[in-house]
Design a protein around this nucleic acid. Structure first.
Length: 277
DNA sequence: CGGCTTTGACCCGCGC
DNA sequence: GCGCGGGTCAAAGCCG
């Protein structure tokens, strides 16, 4: 219960034109190429230049693709209650959000114009695949991915006007690691805490109002997640050495630092977020 | 009964 | 041009 710290890595969802790097030369494939070391190549850290994660996201998203190279700092999100798993550092997991549809309007008959949307991926150490983030999701598919014994699940936000999707899959090497990729942006506020917990407090509008206005924010990242990250990303100066702040050992109560995170049992496990393209 | 999950099929883009 | 792999749809089943 004290080792609950998460490392936030953000890594760009390389999407360029290189979408489908599917089987990077017969190996890599989708999410976790067993390479087990390329992670650092693709993961980037929160840039200190940004006051907050939100800003961080906004910046690069708006103009520069990515602020900086992978650094090495981590964040701790005071997960109390010790929900289920212990957090640890991921270092050899690579997550590649290859970007698939550029504009492909697949599907039969349905003319869905697929245009790339902002994506945000992060790794979470959790026993459950589907982390509750306050929004309601409907699973619309599941697929076995290559080089990964674990299937990838596809979810859509059930809110009508919202077309946010997310993919969830487990790391092949570390089954305890769940990689969640959000795509698109919620154009609404967090529903009435479907599960009754976190949603309400943790996604208080005040926290997500900034650059990520749920109403029409230019961003598409999980506001809830941002909420957590905003502060955690203190990024003191000795990043790389110390995991930012560990609420629990930091002396201050987690609740304080993370504002209203009553008892969220979902994103608390975030291990390493990727980065919105 | 309504909503969600499951699962097989279909479609599409990319690499060879 | 073909095959592979990934993403989505939609019908059926399950559960609350």
């Amino acid at each position: 219960m004290s080792d609950e710290f998460k490392e936030f890595y953000y890594h760009p969802q390389f999407d360029h034109d290189d979408h489908h790097r599917r089987s990077n030369s017969g190996g890599g494939a989708a999410a976790f190429p067993n390479s087990g070391n390329t992670l650092h190549n693709n993961m980037q850290m929160f840039d200190p230049s940004y006051l907050s994660f939100s800003e961080f996201l906004t910046g690069p998203t708006a103009q520069n693709p990515f602020p900086g190279p992978f650094d090495s700092s981590s964040v701790s999100s005071g997960s109390n209650e010790g929900k289920k798993e212990a957090k640890e550092t991921l270092e050899n997991e690579e997550y590649h959000e290859s970007y698939k549809k550029d504009d492909k309007s697949k599907k039969k008959g349905a003319d869905k114009k697929k245009q790339r949307q902002q994506q945000f991926a992060f790794m979470t150490k959790s026993e459950v695949d589907h982390l509750e983030d306050g929004y309601k999701w409907r699973k619309y598919g599941q697929k076995a991915v290559k080089n990964n014994a674990y299937p990838r699940s596809y979810y859509k936000c059930t809110t009508q006007q919202c077309s946010v999707k997310k993919r969830v899959e487990r790391s092949f090497e570390n089954p305890s690691i769940v990689v969640t990729t959000y795509e698109g942006q919620h154009n609404h506020h967090v529903p009435e805490a479907p599960r009754g917990r976190l949603a309400a407090g943790m996604f208080a509008p005040s926290m997500i109002s900034s650059p990520f206005g749920p109403s029409e924010g230019p961003n598409s990242f999980p506001q809830e997640l941002l909420g957590q990250m905003t502060h955690p990303y203190s990024y003191g100066g000795d990043e790389g050495t110390s995991n930012v702040t560990d609420p629990q050992t930091n002396g201050s109560s987690p609740r304080q630092q993370y504002n209203q995170f009553p008892d969220y049992g979902l994103l608390q496990d975030i291990t390493s977020p990727a980065f919105p393209r």
